[in-house]
Design a protein around this nucleic acid. Structure first.
Lengths: 113, 113
DNA sequence: TCCGACAGTACCCGATAGGAACCAGCGTGC
DNA sequence: GCACGCTGGTTCCTATCGGGTACTGTCGGA
């Protein structure tokens, strides 16, 4: 059971003050699981992600990528080429998160609707 | 069966029209993973869930439970007792979803912050 | 000169999350 | 009778988020 102290001495997603709650919120948000999955096979560009994640608007995709980058789950690399090329790639941490997220997507595809 | 074939003949979370996208959105929302995890060990009452999920407001908990019930991931049973007792319990489908969600929570607890 | 590709940003709007307060039914104490 | 507490919520209001459309800026090509 959750030992509810006012701080978080061990990681417990059920504890309100635990930083891992933030991580769960991020991973468990609408597009994150799809973005991370789309990057499993290697780096992808903004436009490629946009096509792969059917229905995502550029704004939301941009926000999602920024949050994932802030959390160090992905890296963003801009190449000063013409036309501009920007690549997003999973970090080691992101690749770790991709594993349980893939299980979740697989379960959903097997059991939804 | 996924052979309804209007727009989504196979389950693919990356397809915009696929009903499994809705399921992913539901599971990958802020409180769902925690609610389902809290019900893994058996039925729980509203107040128990409220304590277990530190920081959840009754409104949001109520909404989350309703959506999970609509999707048949949990059942709600009200007993005409004094005081009123309401129990939430995982369905078979919900218990299935609990497995990948537990992996996700475990990963988060092992890797966050 | 205009067009399109690329990687976003700006603006506006509706939906959702969040907090605080409030409600209803029932039993108990006064 | 009346307040009180327990339980399981609902309602109000606001802040944030997600979402759609339009637009920017740079460049190469027709």
């Amino acid at each position: 059971m959750a030992t509810t102290t006012d701080s978080c001495d061990r990681n417990d997603v059920y504890a309100a003050m635990c930083p891992c709650r933030d991580m769960l919120d991020l991973l468990a948000s609408k597009w994150s699981a799809l973005v991370i999955g789309a990057l499993e096979d290697g780096p992808r560009r903004f436009g490629q992600l946009r096509l792969r994640l059917e229905g995502v608007s550029p704004k939301v995709l941009s926000q999602t990528l920024k949050r994932l980058e802030d959390r160090e789950l992905i890296t963003r690399t801009a190449y000063a080429e013409v036309p501009l090329r920007v690549e997003y790639e999973l970090t080691e941490l992101g690749a770790g998160a991709a594993v349980p997220l893939k299980h979740l997507r697989d379960w959903v595809e097997s059991n939804a609707a």
